[in-house]
Amino acid sequence: MSDQPDGRALLEVARRTLLDKVLPALPPDKTYDVLMIASAMAIAARELASGAARRDAGKEAVAAFWRESGCAGDAPGDEAGLAAAIRGRRIPESAQAALHGLLLTLARSRLMLANPKYPHD
């Protein structure tokens, strides 16, 4: 267990301080920079909280796709292998719907880290 508050909690309180106390005191031409900083801090905090778990879940989803589609062959189970198999048209028609579903799952998971407020289901 890490010392408390942990990295995520520190980022969160730092971000609140930036937005609540620093931003109002700055000239308007700095607003955009501050909002970008706050946004980067929020992404980093979410990644600390659930990034590793999401990466593992993503790997598992890719591996499950290969197992269930029955077209694993020698393609490695990471995203580079998946990208290469798609480019190489090595995924049969019968697995395209499952592939679409897998990609949607991966995109949604990344969206939850980068911008959970972005409209999605």
């Binding site: 592939l99 679409h100 990609l103 969206l111 880290l113 980068a114 911008n115």
Partner: peptide, 24 residues
Amino acid sequence: LTGRMLPEMEYDMLRQIESIGGTN
């Protein structure tokens, strides 16, 4: 930060392909 916008575009493209009709 622009690099971290990719999931937005990726999600939207997948959804739009779906709504246009079918998968790949």
